[in-house]
Structure formats: C-alpha cells, structure tokens
Amino acid sequence: MTPRISEPIRKKPVWIGFIVLFALINPWYFPAGISSYLIMGVPLWALITLLASLALSVFITWVVLTQWHTDSDEIYGDHNKRNGSREE
C-alpha cells in the first residue's frame, strides 16, 4: 500500500486560511475611536486581535491534523530501533 502524501504548502485552503488569518492578526482594520470600547478593562480591538490569534492556533491544529501526512513513519517506524548510521 502506498500511503497518500500530503504537504500543507501544496494545499490551496491552507494558503488562503493563513493569508486571511495573517491579515486579521495585524490590527489595521479598526475604526478611529475603537479604543474607548473596553470590556472588563481590556480594549475591544485587543480582544478581537487575540481572538484572531486563537483562530490561527486552531487553524494550525486543523492543518497539522488533516493536511500533513508523509510516509516517513510507515517507512522508518520508530527510529529508536535503528542505529545512527547514514544510508547514503
């Protein structure tokens, strides 16, 4: 059986997700005067930026779990059982 190989860098949704989230973690999109909105003493814009950062972490989790798969674990298994000699 040949395992399917998948790399995040070759996936369009990964690029789109990272670009959108990167845009959101840069706080350029807030209107002037936003700093007067405080929630429990924390500016609203800061909370939104933190939320965007959390969304990036969640997206990273999704990418790692679903978009990244190579055959190295199938081929090499647990490296502890091998010695450190080079193959080439």
Partner: peptide
C-alpha cells in the same frame, strides 16, 4: 508548517 513536514521526512 511551510517546511518542517518535508524537512523532517
């Protein structure tokens, strides 16, 4: 994530 998957393999 842009390079580690391939570099690890």
């Amino acid at each position: 994530l842009f390079f580690a998957p391939r570099l690890y393999a």
